[in-house]
């Protein structure tokens, strides 16, 4: 079990070595990065926006219910919503959601290419298939996911503001005041660093499981599941490490 685990880690780093070797033609890779940004990034905007607006609204409601004491200023509800969105939700939770959506898509795409011999065909042409297929996905993810994170923060807090305006659980003015309260710009830097690291983990781990898929469509499905589980766990572990390292 332990031998298999370390064996997998070794194979992952060997694959990454192949991925980051010198690309054949930068121009082709740049074009592929754009294509991947559209597939991985633009394709995730809607789901990220929907989840963010609802979570922002729910966090505001929960805060309003739990801080319903006369001595606690209502502006703290806006403050708490903002901090929740910035520090955890828009990076870690969005990353977990993207691990499911993007991770399974990457693993099944590359896995299908493997079992239909498309990867062998690339190798036969003399193409470094690992670099050609995986590097553009990693670059696209690392550059685009932080934008999704910023978008999620903005939409989530907007969701909180909307629910406060609609239900009146907190006065919108107090909510806005809370959003401006004790703002620390390092929180944004911290969450963007986290998101870039999570993007690398999701795209590379999912690609790894897809790249080494063997057999038939059932195996591709299993690889896809393994990719989601492994990248989600790795994201959670690195969330802890990065929080300890960057915030404490």
């Amino acid at each position: 079990m332990l031998k298999k685990f370390f064996g997998e880690i070794g194979r992952y780093f060997l694959l990454m070595g192949k991925v980051f070797s010198r690309p054949e033609k930068m121009r082709i890779y740049r074009r592929r990065v754009m294509v991947e940004m559209e597939a991985i990034g633009l394709g995730s905007i809607v789901i990220t926006a929907i989840i963010s607006v609802f979570i922002g609204a729910v966090v505001t409601l929960q805060m309003a219910i739990n801080l319903d004491e006369g001595f606690i200023p209502q502006s703290l509800i806006g403050f708490a919503t903002r901090e929740t969105m910035i520090l955890e939700f828009s990076s870690t939770v969005v990353a977990l959601i993207l691990a499911g959506k993007v991770g399974s898509s990457i693993a099944s795409e590359i896995g299908t290419m493997r079992i239909t011999e498309q990867i062998d065909a690339l190798e036969l042409m003399g193409v470094n298939s690992a670099s050609y297929l995986i590097l553009p996905k990693i670059v696209a993810g690392v550059f685009f996911f932080p934008f999704l994170c910023i978008m999620s923060i903005l939409i989530g807090t907007a969701g909180g503001y909307m629910i406060s305006a609609v239900t009146g659980v907190v006065m919108p003015g107090d909510f806005l005041e809370g959003l401006h309260l004790d703002f620390n710009t390092w929180s944004i830097t911290y969450t963007l660093i986290k998101m870039a690291v999570f993007a690398f983990i999701i795209t590379s781990v999912s690609s790894f499981y897809g790249y080494w898929a063997r057999g038939n469509s059932l195996e591709v499905a299993r690889s896809s599941t393994r990719a989601v589980v492994a990248s989600s766990i790795t994201v959670l572990v690195f969330n802890l490490i990065l929080t300890q390292w960057l915030l404490i």
């Binding site: 299908t112 239909t116 011999e117 498309q118 062998d120 065909a121 190798e123 042409m125 003399g126």
Partner: peptide, 19 residues
């Protein structure tokens, strides 16, 4: 190996065209 492979062409059973 990469250099020799650029002198090879291969037709796979299922075609193996990039989808």
């Amino acid at each position: 190996v990469k250099a020799v492979r650029q002198e090879m062409g291969m037709i796979f059973q299922g075609g193996a065209l990039l989808d």
